[in-house]
Design a protein around this nucleic acid. Structure first.
Length: 412
RNA sequence: UGCCUGGUAGCUCAAUUGGCAGAGCGGCUGGCUGUUAACCAGCAUGUUCGAGGUUCGAGUCCUCGCCAGGCAGCCA
């Protein structure tokens, strides 16, 4: 076996080595009897996170954590490790973040990384199973789509390019080619948000489908979430245990999810003492209130036009609200998905761009999509990190991604 | 960006509220023939975030700054 020393314990002429490798932990036992004097001396000198190669016999032993152990017959030091900074005791967040590159080796962090990988695979598998084609959207984009303050500018030869905030507009183009598409990739937001739910670099999966209505869109979200939760429960129960995640709460996540309209939400909030005037967007306390109210994820639908992006289609029966559906994760985790049916009329889209004081020129290609065989279409974006945070039961989004990028924090 | 809390050994924290800066962990040395974040004995470790001020005396009080954490705002 090859791996790293997670911890050592000794008892005279028996040395216990907790060995960590890419699959987990196992106890190795090095005894004076069965090793050369040099190897035994080495076993006694081993430090936290030294890398070693060892040979031995696997046997059952009830005294070993996990019930199995490796009786070492040969031991070799691959790389030494002096004064490893992270101990098995408590550390503060700032210290751990400063040592994120090493913190990732811990049991808890590796469990999160595995759950994250399973979530990403579940997302892609589900979309593929529903006839969607993965189509990548560009990261470098030409224009400030919705004002420059939330975009990261980058030098692009003699002009300025911006890191993409979302692949959605491009998805609207590709879904007119392949009908059902999704993009999967990073998105960048230069917002000065300093909260436990915001990153400046995040990953999103964004489906977009031609001929999809509001209702199709909601159903797709529901199916996706159920599939993700099911895959994690099936394949990552051990990791959820390491994370001390209450998996009963996850087992309750079954379709259909409750839906509440914006109007109903205001009513519920008022009853809870969190009144909000019609037309105002929900704040963090309001979102948390609604998120805690249900055991399942809950859809918030039909938000006022003023709260939402310019491209969202108004409800034909009530033009002051949109055909939007956002999904709030339960247990206070809040929004993980934002989506809607999109405007398919050229005239209305032009009007909205003007109303939002956006320049028309950068949207020329986007408007073309309404000139050449425009169809009803809908889509959404799901934040990978927010989903991981919820499913793993994390307190802060920073643990949901290997190297989080947050307001003014870029090291390591 | 605002509000709240904090900054003391490598780490996590204490220091009788203004009177000798200390403990656990980690490290090092030694002991222990089955350890379970092992245990036992010993050793080393400080610009108390920075600048200024009050005071006989400041880790402790005051002012400013820096940094961190939490909350909120901002947020397709």
């Amino acid at each position: 076996m090859e791996g790293w020393v997670y911890n050592t314990r000794s008892s005279g002429s028996v040395q216990f080595i907790l060995l960590r490798d890419g699959t987990g932990l196992v106890q190795a036992v090095a005894s004076r009897q069965s090793l050369s004097p040099e190897s035994f001396a080495l076993a006694k000198r081993l430090t936290h996170e030294a890398s070693i190669r060892l040979r031995g016999r696997v046997r059952e032993d009830a005294r070993s954590p996990g019930g199995v152990e490796l009786e070492v017959s040969d031991l070799e030091l691959v790389g030494p490790s002096q004064d490893y900074p992270i101990t098995l005791k408590e550390h503060g967040t700032a210290f751990l973040m400063e040592h994120r590159h090493l913190w990732l080796r811990s049991l808890r962090q590796t469990a999160i990384l595995r759950v994250r990988a399973t979530i990403v695979k579940a997302m892609r598998d589900y979309m593929d199973s529903q006839g969607f084609t993965l189509v990548d959207a560009p990261i470098l984009t030409p224009a400030a789509v919705e004002g420059t303050t939330t975009l990261f500018p980058v030098e692009y030869f003699n002009e300025t390019a911006y890191l993409s905030q979302s692949g959605q507009l491009y998805n609207e183009a590709t879904c007119m080619a392949l009908e059902r598409v999704y993009c999967f990739g990073p998105a960048f937001r230069a917002e000065k948000s300093n909260t436990r739910r915001h990153l400046t670099e995040l990953w999103m999966m964004e489906p977009e489908a031609a001929f999809f209505t509001y209702e199709n869109n909601v159903r797709l979200q529901e199916g996706l979430i159920c599939s993700i939760v099911e895959q994690v429960l099936t394949h990552r129960s051990r990791e959820l245990e390491v994370l001390e995640r209450n998996s009963d709460a996850l087992r309750k996540v079954t379709a259909p999810f409750p839906r509440i309209t914006y109007d109903d939400a205001l009513q519920l909030l008022a009853e809870g003492g969190l009144e909000l005037p019609w037309g105002e967007d929900l704040g963090a306390p309001q979102e948390a209130f609604l998120s805690c109210r249900y055991e399942k994820p809950v859809f918030l639908t039909h938000f006022p036009v003023a709260c939402k992006a310019f491209y969202m289609k108004p409800d034909p029966h009530r033009p002051e609200v949109t055909l939007s559906a956002d999904l709030l994760a339960p247990e206070g985790y809040g929004e993980i998905i934002g989506g809607s049916e999109r405007i398919d009329s050229l005239e209305l889209l032009e009007e909205r761009i003007r109303q939002h004081n956006l320049p028309m020129e950068p949207y020329r290609w986007y408007l073309d999509l309404r000139r050449f065989g425009s169809v009803p279409h809908a889509g959404f974006g799901i934040g990978v990190e927010r989903t991981v945070t919820w499913i793993c039961g994390l307190e802060h989004i920073r643990e949901s991604i290997p190297f989080p990028r947050m307001l003014e924090k870029m090291y390591p």
